[in-house]
Design a protein around this nucleic acid. Structure first.
Lengths: 290, 290
DNA sequence: CATTTCATGCAACAAATGTTTCATGGCCGA
DNA sequence: TCGGCCATGAAACATTTGTTGCATGAAATG
């Protein structure tokens, strides 16, 4: 049996939480959500704010293996101490093997991807957003790993333009949709090497139909970028690893949605509020009260 | 008397320092150098470590305009409070309108998200990957905007473990899958504020079943993180914009897949090659030559 | 239904906290 | 040299802190 991650007092708390009495759960959640206050303010003070008995804090600490609240707070304090420069960010050069080679891999990957994001050209995104804003209808296509990007874009755009945004192939074979593209509409295609035939076919159909074609790709030479009105480039291979990085594509998709929403002004805002109200009414989300 | 400009308690201290008695200077320097301990440990404790009298701390606080040590410490505590709003949020407002406001918005968003990535803790990802490696079966759940993350993870893991990875709800109502969780399996739940009921239900079912629960969330206080064996945190609100940022979640998902693949060794490599060969044979991809 | 267990709030407790007072000793100006 | 001034440490103070014993009531157990 794998040992649970007992590195941080918060993870101990998190693990033990579900098996605790109700009031202790409530207090535990409060501590997890306000751990900075937990280290700085007094127990009674916290109890007053959480609306619980001071004794509950002592009992919580004991329930997860500490001798008392003081000891728990000391652990939280140490975990939060700033000077500790993340014991693993010591830039392990031993990438080959070692106890922390996995950690080094993750760190390198994250740093590399972070470096790639600011290199994404912002201007084309703003222009593409303008095109989306003007489009009567928006189609989105992405296959294989790029499907996640396409679906995210679809989701966010539908939040404020529910009737005008559609995934290609959402309601039947792709081929049916390919014939439905019209001038004045916009088609977004997401893809990178190796390029799927399906995405190329969507791009070509869009181009032929006279619709505005927006390509989110890793290269200007990508087949689906041919004839595109807007090409949004990201660096898929910028990070070490085994799969191309989609971080850049996601960042582009979210920026695109954000700017398009911004262009939508009060109308978009109103529609977003309606959507949110509907979701709340359907009690999709957990209430925020803790 | 008139109070000095209250930019920061530490700067007040630094300014007033030279005109103070010798002992108070010594204590003041100690506070400036150990301000984290100053906010967390007791006055007497600090006095012992600094080799000074406890009263000196009270006198220092009064000397720079506070009513007592408690008030000084409260100011230091607030100054150190982790900012819930990113340092870029202030700048975003500066160019809300203008000729290139859209471009500026995109740039800010990208820079902010890039800054957030290296802050993702790498260690938990490596540990979670180890858990995935050991799992006999892997379930993945994510709803609404988080569905894109879940599907990406599902796609990449299936590249080298096709028969052991499954999206919750992929082949019927979620409820059917919830009863299928078993000890020795792993369940990954992706979610951030506002949390959907569906994701919380999956997390609870996983915990009850004895399966290893891995949560990818924006907060340790997230409901689906309760009882989780591994929690992978990202900053959803780190960037200016209208939707929570998924860039961090995507980066985590891809790192997780990469490390898991790495742990899989030659077996995983072989399976990936098989999958690629099959896709090539089906001519899914456009040939690389011309 | 009777009994036990347990979660929970209240109140009293001892310990620790920040503050104040007081005595001491060094320093500078008459 | 004397007298006032102030910095400084030690001890006493009132408050606040974390803890624990006890009573109550609800839920589980027989």
């Amino acid at each position: 049996m794998a040992e649970p991650a007992k590195s941080s007092p918060l993870s101990e708390l998190r693990i033990a939480l579900p098996s605790l009495p109700m009031r202790l759960q409530q207090v535990g959640r409060f501590v997890a959500a306000n751990d900075y206050d937990a280290t700085t303010r007094s127990m009674r003070d916290l109890a007053a704010e959480a609306g619980a008995d001071p004794a509950a804090f002592t009992r919580l600490a004991k329930a997860i293996g500490y001798s008392g609240w003081d000891e728990l707070r000391a652990a939280l304090t140490e975990a939060r101490r700033p000077s500790q420069t993340s014991p693993f960010s010591g830039r392990a050069k031993s990438h080959l093997h070692g106890p922390n080679s996995d950690v080094a891999l993750v760190t390198d990957k994250l740093v590399a991807e972070a470096a790639g994001l600011p290199r994404i050209p912002a201007q084309p995104i703003a222009e593409a957003a303008r095109a989306l804003h003007d489009a009567k209808r928006i189609w989105i296509a992405g296959y294989r790993s790029c499907r996640s990007v396409a679906e995210l874009l679809n989701y966010e755009l539908r939040l404020f333009r529910p009737e005008q945004v559609q995934l290609v192939g959402a309601s039947g074979p792709d081929d049916l949709d390919l014939g439905a593209f019209r001038p004045g509409e916009a088609v977004i295609v997401v893809g990178f090497l190796p390029y799927t035939h399906a995405s190329v076919r969507v791009a070509q159909a869009a181009h032929r139909s006279g619709a505005t074609l927006i390509a989110i790709a890793d290269s200007l030479a990508a087949p689906m970028a041919e004839g595109a009105d807007h090409v949004l480039l990201f660096e898929a291979a910028s990070s070490p690893g085994f799969f191309p990085s989609l971080t850049g594509a996601i960042a582009i998709a979210q920026s695109l949605a954000a700017v398009t929403f911004s262009l939508g002004g009060v109308v978009a805002k109103k529609r977003l509020e309606n959507t949110e109200a509907r979701l709340t009414a359907a009690s999709t989300y957990v209430s925020e009260k803790g």
